[in-house]
């Protein structure tokens, strides 16, 4: 079964909402967010969210209080993509939705000063009843909803009315590849014809705390809050719906390199959290393929689960007809995937 990507949409602060990266490549902007010192010793860079509430697809005020910023970006990206791809209502009812998320604690929850105050109250409590009362007073009923792991998936579904097979994966850059893998699996089983896939990432101290022990050297650690979504469908479905394929999906391998006899025209890599990790990934890809690899790290830092969508987008932009590319993603634990794609 031949599967193709028929649309991509992404968001990052420097880019805004965009369906291709051509403007970005005309004005390459390195991640210029101000460095922060965390844990009293590490210098890190987080580029965070800045989405205008005036956007026509901005969520309803009643939902905003339990939506993370990357969830808002994802919901808008998904609506923009479905609109531009002219997905019909009857398609949405059976469409699959596979989403990957990296971080469930955003800045609306993670306020260290407030946490320190709460801890002070807990420490002052003279018995368990007082301690539990302090806890209860500090915890907003919105916390469990705002930290709900499938929040982005559920809000995307609510705002787009996609009702088919649907899952949330976490929590590294590879998770988006697992989302793609399962979308492919369900299409092979004839359970789905069209899938909306994506990933989003919230860049903040909590994300850093989850990763920092796994990074060999913390030099130029950088992340960007981001979101990307893309549509994957079978060739027959794309033809029937009159949607053009921007990339064919050739092969997706986990923890294995493709045995390709032809060199790839382009190689893209992602997953690094620091400059030195990124250098290692680029050189590893060159060693394996003989082709110079491109990475977004210098411009964004890590894009977490959104990274795959961005790499597909650049492949779609840069490949010429019949050219192929390898997309290599490696997580902090050393697991990796190789996705090979071809331009129609």
């Amino acid at each position: 079964m031949k599967l193709g990507v028929t649309g991509i949409q992404h968001w990052e602060k420097a880019l805004g909402f965009s369906a291709d990266l051509s403007a970005f490549f005309q004005h390459l902007t390195p991640n210029n967010a101000l460095g922060q010192t965390v844990l009293n010793q590490y210098s890190v860079t987080f580029r965070q969210c800045d989405i205008s509430p005036e956007h026509p697809f901005y969520p309803k005020a009643s939902d905003l209080k339990v939506m993370r910023d990357d969830t808002i970006a994802s919901v808008i990206c998904a609506q923009l993509l479905l609109q531009s791809a002219q997905i019909q209502d009857h398609e949405k009812a059976e469409m699959s939705l596979f989403f990957a998320n990296s971080n469930f604690i955003d800045n609306g929850i993670l306020d260290f000063d407030t946490i320190a105050l709460a801890i002070g109250e807990i420490q002052k409590a003279s018995n368990a009843i007082e301690k539990n009362k302090s806890f209860a007073a500090e915890v907003s009923p919105l916390v469990p909803l705002r930290t709900l792991t499938n929040s982005t998936q559920s809000f995307v579904s609510q705002y787009t009315q996609i009702k088919g097979d649907s899952t949330t994966y976490g929590s590294t850059c590879l998770s988006a590849a697992h989302a793609l893998d399962d979308a492919i699996t369900l299409m092979q089983l004839n359970l789905s014809k069209t899938a909306l896939l994506g990933g989003s990432h919230f860049a903040n101290v909590f994300s850093f705390l989850n990763q920092y022990l796994h990074v060999p050297t913390i030099d130029q650690y950088a992340e960007s809050t981001s979101a990307s979504v893309f549509i994957v469908e079978s060739e027959s479905q794309a033809i029937a719906a009159n949607r053009s394929v921007c990339l064919w999906i050739d092969q997706l391998l986990f923890n294995d390199w493709p045995e390709s006899t032809n060199p790839f025209n382009r190689v893209y890599c992602g997953g690094a959290l620091t400059r030195s990790q990124d250098n290692d990934l680029v050189s590893k890809c060159h060693q394996q393929t003989g082709t110079d690899a491109q990475s977004f790290f210098p411009y964004f830092g890590s894009l977490g689960c959104a990274e795959l969508g961005f790499l597909l987008s650049v492949a779609s932009l840069q490949l010429h007809a019949n050219e192929s590319a390898l997309i290599y993603l490696e997580d902090v634990f050393g697991s990796f995937c190789c996705l090979t794609v071809k331009k129609p």
Binding site: L39, N40, F112, S171, T172, L209, N210, Q211, H214
Partner: peptide
């Protein structure tokens, strides 16, 4: 709070993070 986290968490580079557990 940062100082405490550094003290309680394990200062080694491994796949094990004793406080902030990654899903993996």
């Amino acid at each position: 709070l940062y100082r405490t986290l550094l003290r309680v968490n394990q200062p080694v580079h491994s796949t094990i993070n004793t406080i902030f557990n990654h899903s993996d």
